[in-house]
């Protein structure tokens, strides 16, 4: 059935085209594969166009589209698991990378002591920060990146993450703790290095 194209949905379609690159980089952080990320975004965009009349008139178009994308990303993630594309690992051997940030007695290692990143609002509005964030996410071990992304980017609870991944909740917390420590170290190195 051909939909009647109103001026409103014409404009929304232009918006979708414009926001597509950002949606793809979001999906790629979670799916860790460009082709799959593009597919998920394509499906989300098609769903948004198809369901345009259910949106019509309400505010928060971007939030709505973003919500659709999150569902599509979860679908794709499930497919990745089914196809054996990725296997959540309880124990990624990255304990050493974490231990390097601390001395034997549990205090911060001199080299790893956290510094001030400046005003959080300014940081989060900086395109440079997002580039560094993207790089550091890519550098994370697979399970760490996916679990971090499910928790912090997709906003799932650790309970839901257990359901999606088959990981135990305790392991989830351990993985998140390590992921956050690795990310902070990676981001800090690049963020402060270039600014100087």
């Amino acid at each position: 059935m051909q939909q009647i194209t109103t001026e409103g949905n014409q404009e929304r379609m232009q918006r979708l085209v414009a926001v597509r690159p950002r949606l793809i980089s979001f999906a790629r952080l979670q799916l860790r594969d460009l082709a799959r990320a593009e597919d998920a975004v394509q499906e989300a965009i098609e769903a948004a166009i198809e369901k345009d009349d259910t949106f019509a008139g309400r505010s928060g178009y971007e939030t709505w589209v973003f919500g659709i994308l999150k569902y599509k990303i979860l679908d794709s993630l499930r497919a990745q698991r089914r196809e054996g594309w990725w296997q959540p690992l309880d124990e990624e051997l990255d304990e050493a990378a974490i231990d390097r940030q601390f001395q034997k007695n549990g205090r911060w290692d001199q080299e790893a002591r956290p510094s001030d990143w400046g005003d959080p609002e300014t940081t989060l509005h900086s395109e440079r920060f997002w580039k560094i964030f993207d790089l550091c996410m890519t550098a994370l071990p697979d399970t760490a990146a996916r679990v971090f992304s499910l928790r912090e980017l997709m906003g799932l609870s650790t309970e839901d993450i257990c359901r999606e991944t088959g990981l135990k909740q305790n392991n989830c917390w351990v993985i998140l703790h390590r992921a956050r420590l690795r990310l902070r170290a990676c981001i800090e190195r690049d963020w402060l290095a270039e600014e100087a």
Binding site: P114, P120, L124, E152, L153, M154, L183, R184
Partner: peptide, 9 residues
């Protein structure tokens, strides 16, 4: 820094 990472989504 952890709190900031928590805001990324």
């Amino acid at each position: 820094q952890f709190s900031l990472l928590h805001e990324t989504g």
